[in-house]
Amino acid sequence: IINNLKLIREKKKISQSELAALLEVSRQTINGIEKNKYNPSLQLALKIAYYLNTPLEDIFQW
């Protein structure tokens, strides 16, 4: 999986903590996703895309 979450999140000036709060997950979860240590569920990936107002395929590429 190619993961552009960190790049997109930083472009939008959103911290890991802010995104985690919006998604109701821990900051460690966001960190793990960004470091490719954790693959989000489809539901979480869709929520990330929604809150970042970015197409899912721009954030994650399988």
Rank of each mutant, 00 (worst) to 15 (best):
I1E: 07
I48N: 00
L22F: 14
I2D: 08
Y50K: 11
K12L: 07
L44Q: 07
L19F: 06
Y50M: 13
K47V: 03
L52F: 05
W62G: 09
L42N: 07
Y38G: 06
L46F: 08
N4F: 06
L46P: 00
A20L: 02
F60T: 00
K13R: 13
Q28G: 14
L7T: 14
Q16K: 07
R27F: 08
S26M: 04
T29R: 08
Y38S: 09
R27I: 15
A45T: 05
I14H: 03
N39H: 13
A49V: 04
P55F: 04
L42V: 10
Y51R: 06
E18Y: 09
E57A: 11
I14D: 01
S26P: 15
Q28S: 14
Q16T: 07
E10W: 06
K12Y: 04
A49G: 06
K12I: 08
S17I: 13
I8W: 07
A21N: 12
R27S: 14
E10S: 07
I33N: 00
L5M: 12
E18C: 08
Y51D: 01
N3V: 07
L22K: 12
L7H: 13
L52Y: 01
Q16M: 09
N4P: 03
K6D: 02
Y38N: 08
W62R: 09
L23Q: 00
N31M: 14
L5P: 01
N4T: 06
L52Q: 00
I59C: 03
Q43A: 14
A21C: 11
Q61L: 10
I1M: 13
K13A: 06
Q61A: 11
N31R: 14
L5S: 03
T29Q: 07
A21R: 12
E24T: 08
P55L: 04
S17N: 10
I59Y: 01
L52I: 04
N36R: 10
S26W: 03
R9K: 01
S41I: 04
S26T: 09
E10F: 06
S26L: 01
Q43V: 10
L56D: 03
K13L: 08
N36K: 09
R9Y: 03
S15F: 03
G32S: 14
F60K: 00
K13I: 05
L23H: 00
K47Y: 03
L7G: 09
V25T: 07
L56Y: 08
K13G: 15
A20P: 00
P40K: 01
P40F: 06
Y50R: 08
I1K: 10
L56H: 04
N3Q: 05
I8H: 08
Y50F: 14
P40D: 05
K35T: 15
S15Y: 05
L22H: 12
R9E: 01
Q28H: 14
S17T: 12
T54H: 06
Q28A: 14
W62T: 13
I1Q: 10
N39T: 14
R9W: 04
E34I: 02
S17E: 13
A45V: 05
L42E: 07
I33P: 00
R9S: 02
L46M: 14
E10K: 09
Y50E: 13
A21V: 09
L19K: 00
Q28W: 12
A45S: 08
K12T: 06
Y51N: 06
A45L: 06
N4M: 05
S41R: 06
K13C: 09
I2S: 13
I33T: 01
R9T: 03
E57K: 11
R9Q: 04
K12Q: 13
R9G: 01
S15I: 03
N53F: 05
W62L: 14
I14W: 05
P40Y: 05
K6S: 07
L42K: 10
Q61Y: 13
T54Y: 05
T29C: 15
I2H: 13
V25S: 03
Q28N: 14
F60G: 01
S26A: 06
T54N: 03
I8P: 00
I2P: 11
I8D: 02
I30F: 04
G32E: 15
K37H: 14
P40M: 05
I48G: 00
N39K: 15
A45F: 03
A45R: 09
Q61R: 11
V25D: 01
L19N: 00
Q28K: 14
E18F: 07
E18S: 09
I8K: 03
N31H: 10
I1H: 12
I8T: 06
Y38L: 14
K37N: 11
R27T: 15
L7E: 15
K37M: 15
K6H: 07
D58L: 13
K11F: 09
Y38R: 13
R27W: 15
R9D: 03
T29G: 04
Q16F: 02
P55V: 05
K35Q: 15
L19S: 00
K13E: 14
N53S: 11
N39L: 14
E18R: 12
L23E: 00
K12D: 02
N31Y: 08
Q43E: 14
L42D: 05
Y38A: 09
N4V: 05
A49Y: 02
S17W: 12
L5F: 03
N31T: 07
P40G: 03
L5C: 05
T29F: 14
W62P: 08
N4K: 09
Q43C: 14
A45N: 01
L7Y: 13
N36C: 12
L22T: 07
K6R: 13
A49R: 02
Q28Y: 10
E34W: 02
K12S: 08
Q16Y: 04
N4D: 03
R27H: 12
A21D: 14
S41K: 07
A45M: 15
S17F: 12
N3M: 04
S26E: 08
L5D: 01
L56Q: 03
A21Y: 08
L46C: 14
K47P: 01
S41A: 05
Q43M: 11
D58F: 07
E57I: 07
L23P: 00
K47W: 04
N4E: 05
A20D: 02
I8Q: 06
S41F: 04
W62Y: 11
E10D: 09
E34R: 00
L19P: 00
E34H: 00
L23R: 00
N39G: 12
T29P: 02
L46Y: 10
I59N: 02
L22M: 13
I33Q: 00
S17H: 10
Q43P: 13
D58C: 10
K11N: 11
R27M: 13
K35N: 15
I8G: 02
L56S: 03
S15L: 06
A21K: 14
F60A: 01
K47I: 04
E57M: 09
K13N: 15
K6M: 08
T29W: 09
T54P: 01
N39C: 14
D58V: 12
P55I: 03
K47F: 03
